[in-house]
């Protein structure tokens, strides 16, 4: 039974997270489509932590090299995704300031 539960629990997570993602973006005004796409692009930068674990487990030089590449790409995704999104959303802030 325990094995069954541990097999299915990720599937429940998957289902709930899928619904959540659908809900979050479902009611977004067009104005925020690009920033939000950029925001989700940042969120999957969490791949970085997986890349760190993969590199941490690497034993042979080949595994280390690929793990290194994974961490490098993951860090690029996270950092780049953050600053692109931030720069876009920065504009919404400044425009609000001018309206006052």
């Amino acid at each position: 039974m325990e094995a069954v539960v541990s097999f299915f629990s990720p599937i429940y997570i998957l289902m709930l997270a899928a619904i959540l993602g659908y809900e979050i973006i479902g009611k977004v005004p067009v104005i925020l489509h690009t920033p939000l796409m950029s925001g989700t692009n940042f969120v999957h930068g969490i791949v970085l932590v997986g890349a760190m674990v993969a590199l941490g487990q690497a034993e042979t030089p080949l595994e280390q090299a690929i793990g290194f590449l994974a961490v490098l790409l993951g860090a690029g995704n996270a950092v780049g995704g953050y600053f692109v999104t931030e720069r876009m959303l920065e504009m919404f802030k400044s425009s609000k300031g001018q309206e006052k």
Partner: peptide, 17 residues
Amino acid sequence: SAMIIAGIIVGSSGTLL
């Protein structure tokens, strides 16, 4: 779990977008 949740949220919201 962090990768699973974040990844699926992006997957589903990205599909909808």
